[in-house]
Design a protein around this nucleic acid. Structure first.
Lengths: 130, 130
DNA sequence: ACAATTACGCACCTTTTGGTAACTATGAAA
DNA sequence: TTTCATAGTTACCAAAAGGTGCGTAATTGT
């Protein structure tokens, strides 16, 4: 029998292993927009224009691009109604929904603690006169 | 009395508001390394070299830089023992610890679902012959 | 004939992020 | 006197992220 130390980490996923796919999963949502888009889709399908309005300051390019990445990874489902003018709806897949639930926790964390962060930053900056 | 619509969102934080600090809080951890560093510090203080080993493929520059940002925002505490050779310990502040707990949920999500993501990606790519 | 609609592709550019390699400080030990 | 150890810093460069503006498709209403 081999000890766990010698096993080249095939079974137990580890976010700290650079070659592990779980790292990839984290990097997928590490950008500026993915988390917000997933959160925005929480309450049901949305169209391109509605998402742009909701996200406030995203560019058309980044929205399309990010949605495509999320679709590619199976988090978002793109439904093209094939009408003219175009009507496309984006929604969360089951996996996407499971992610949105943990992101909700993160959103709440941000809304709870941003004040503390702001204060700390100001303290830090004034202390070192930057 | 004014209706809620006209109030310029001073009290209720909203991650979707680009001018809201809670967005800033999210962007702070949206990079490649912040989440991993916070997670790495979960089990107590660590020194520079230990963090480098734990994170595997981070550069010295990014480690220092990211730690400094996290310290600036009050998530990480930097303790310099003022010895020679240098001995500096990084640890989580209370706010940092509260974040690390929600990130743990995210790590677990990644470790649970990365297989589904990999599969979806492969399907997507082969379907469109990219 | 043509204007409007909606999602999006593409070309071009700027900004941000990240990596490499070389250099620094300082006291203890060799 | 030289070496070692540790946690940096800096200058320089490459790559990725992101923004702007313009073009396109195809049907409906004017």
């Amino acid at each position: 029998m081999k000890n766990p130390e010698s096993s080249p980490a095939a079974s137990i996923p580890d976010v700290f292993d650079p070659t592990c796919s779980s790292r990839h999963a984290l990097e997928l949502i590490a950008g500026k927009w993915p988390m917000l888009i997933i959160s925005a889709l929480e309450n049901g399908p949305m169209r391109n224009a509605a998402l742009m309005r909701r996200l406030g300051d995203i560019s058309q390019k980044m929205l399309t691009q990010t949605l495509k990445e999320l679709e590619r990874n199976g988090l978002v489902i793109r439904e093209d109604m094939r009408t003219v003018p175009p009507h496309v709806e984006y929604s969360l897949s089951p996996v996407g929904r499971s992610l949105s639930e943990t992101l909700l926790v993160l959103d709440r964390w941000a809304e709870t603690h941003f004040g503390a962060l702001d204060a700390a930053r100001e303290r830090y900056d004034t202390e070192r006169r930057k």
